[in-house]
Design a protein around this nucleic acid. Sequence first.
RNA 1: GGGCGUUUAGCUCAGUUGGCUAGAGCAUCUCCCUUACAAGGAGAGGGUCGGGGGUUCGAGUCCCUCAACGCCCACCA
Length: 857
Amino acid sequence: MSPVPEKPTLDGLETKWIAGWDASGVYAFDRSARRETVFSVDTPPPTVSGSLHMGHVFSYTHTDTVARYRRMTGRAVFYPMGWDDNGLPTERRVQNFFGVSCDPSVPYDPSFEPPFRGDPPRDHRAVPVSRPNFIELCEELTARDEKVFEDLFRRLGLSVDWSLLYATIDERSRRVSQRAFLRNLARGEAYTQEAPTLWDVDFKTAVAQAELEDRERPGAYHKVNFARTDGSGHVTIDTTRPELLPACVALVAHPDDERYVPLFGSTVRTPLFGVEVPVVAHPLAQPDKGTGIAMICTFGDLTDVIWWRELALPTRAIVARDGRILAEAPPGISSDAGLAAYAGLAGKTVKQAQTAIVEMLRESGDLVGDPRPITHPVKFFEKGDRPLEIVTSRQWYIRNGGREQSVRDAMLARGRELRWHPDHMHHRYDNWVEGLNGDWLISRQRWFGVPVPVWYPLDAEGNIVHDSPLVPDESSLPVDPSTDVPAGYDSSQRGVPNGFVADPDVMDTWATSSLTPQIAGRWGDDDTLFTSVYPYDLRPQAHDIIRTWLFSTVVRSHFEHGAAPWANAALSGWILDPDRKKMSKSKGNVVTPLDLFDQYGSDAVRYWAACARPGIDTAFSEEQMKVGRKLATKILNVTKFVLGAAGEHGDDVTEAIDRAMLARLAAVVDEATRAFDNYDYARALERTEQFFWWFCDDYVELVKTRAYEADGGPATGSARTALAEALSVLQRLFAPFLPFTAEEVWSWWQKGSVHVAEWPTPSGTFPLEPGSVAAFDHDGFLDAVCGTIASIRRTKTEAKVSQKAAVESVTVTAPEEMAAAVRSAWGDIAAAGSVGRAEINVGGDELNVTTVLATTA
RNA sequence: GGGCGUUUAGCUCAGUUGGCUAGAGCAUCUCCCUUACAAGGAGAGGGUCGGGGGUUCGAGUCCCUCAACGCCCACCA
């Protein structure tokens, strides 16, 4: 306990209590706890590729209030933190920060120094570095960023157990990630396949369905004529991608489209390139789109892939992995004119090729009219800058129901096992699962990630045997197949006939972060711990990553453990600018959390966050932070005042008004508890706060004279005990929201941390004696009493006199019960209102108060 | 095209199974240095609950319909 300060202040509370909590270990997880007494949180690991913003502060505060509540109800709270530092965002940040680019063909340089550490000049050309050097730089930068993140989260007052910290690139995560993958592989849930995949030409990697986004882009329809090979004229198609003409393998129309039925089975010749292609029928062709007949290319979009697969068409790929037209013409183009036309495109970017081919078509007369500009949605990698292309490559997949109805049904069933907060978020999950169109592509052609832990044997000719990958023993994980050697081989056999070769890919970030429950719970490394936290109680996360993080976690958990990974999923909303637009980093005027902590205090910022209903988008509002600061200040002041009269008291609460106040508080405790049990922290705060202001403005005002009575009897003892009880309950109710303020005021008169104090209960707050009337109408009582004092105040305000002005007489006329209430609390009312004479009559059907002010001398 | 959400005071939002005259905070206005707090306190004004229809003794709340805004998803030549 520390003494009540002369002048309470919020300044410095964060520093004081962060250190205090560290020293006392109040947030440490009790590893001896059994599963049923544990409350485990699958904390989202924030991406460490920049700075934390208000969105983080917002959603992490929500989770923290819930964790703190559970801790106070006696649960052993498992609340870890992790950093998502593996993957593309880090690579990109490292490139920009150090002015380097990764080139696997460069040899490792142990003494490498990057040209810059922060802000390379704009005209700087990236220096190529080896993959190991690049990874070292990734590690250096993430270590730096993670320190900043940790400091900020501590400042926010998150009650995480920092000893449970993990990073998605650390050794433990790599081990868990590779172990889970190998088990998926052994059970047939992971497989490799050579197939057309969406490809980002800048990052030069495959991307998954979950990482796509559509962007509206300008384009143009081009009408192009294909000559019929029987000489009977031509067919006109419409295309937005004329540059893919050399990749055309067929024309397609709807089977019922009478205009084209006669053409099915015949062939046409591509303009410029002279390739003979069939006219085919498929129900996906839309008669009302363009001319109703389209060209199928390998590959322009995902529909092309479907047509190509289902109609067993040949492959004529022309786009390389760097987004340029391949140097060599695809099979089928054999005429001199065709080859010459193709040579005019080779090496060009897709965009340049389009310009060139339109010119060629115009000259040859195969272009009908002018291109008609349109705006249309184009698929992009969500982190990318150029439209995705489709290239054929060998990739790793994990089954997720995209190709098998039975798996899909299982995933939908897992979704139904979860309790969703708010529950309409469940629709998004179902919506996503039902819309899957392929398995989960997990391999990436990148460097800073968890390596796919397999090698392949090479046959006598040095060809890779993909069908029989060599896998490491689980005990040797994590492995880096580019430096480690599979069992039965030695390093001299790498890359030589009859030797082996490493899988060159890494796994996508989501393939690792889908295992956060396993990583944080040390699955496979400490199974005692794992079984005491898994399945988790809560997964908090943002709603935009239901399709990625949430879904992929369910997939992994379903396959590995045959269970849903958590009981509850709580989805947080967005932070919006005050003008209701989604807050974006690019706006430049974004306030940093640290500035707000300095200006208003962490508790005030938390207050703003906790006011937002679960899952509801919320406007950024400094006004709310000011309100939060006011609330915190008020808690300091009212505590000081109440403790001036009352500490811990054992007197009986005998006065009706004191009992009514405690009964009202008990109802608030009940409601706050039920709200928290339902993950509705905002309601718990709202009800607590509403009571608190009433308590300060009315109750404390009414009883302060009696409570401060120097030689008071039982009535004074009653007030003091009630005040102390209410104060204790309120401080505990506020503790999840305003941890610094609550801890401070608690320390003035209580032992230990408020954050491990017992959460109040209704019966502990206002015990009803056996046989007493449970339906004590405390609200009716308090309304009558407070209505009377309010009326007296109103009279004074209207008369423009001070509230302490003396009142000559008050006449109250009210129905019997109200009159009785006013009569029983009259001593307090008279003291608070400086009232001289009173007359209380029974009558009428509502409260009627007449106040006569004393004439001033 | 499919799905979901939102719409209540000038602003931000509560309003839990339908039930007194629809609430809070901020902002505005008036007043008060009152023995914890002037970074405070006491009051006041302000709403045809998005539009229309229906069920009901009674609808902000339930049903139908329309609209605006936002989000998610979709095979978008």
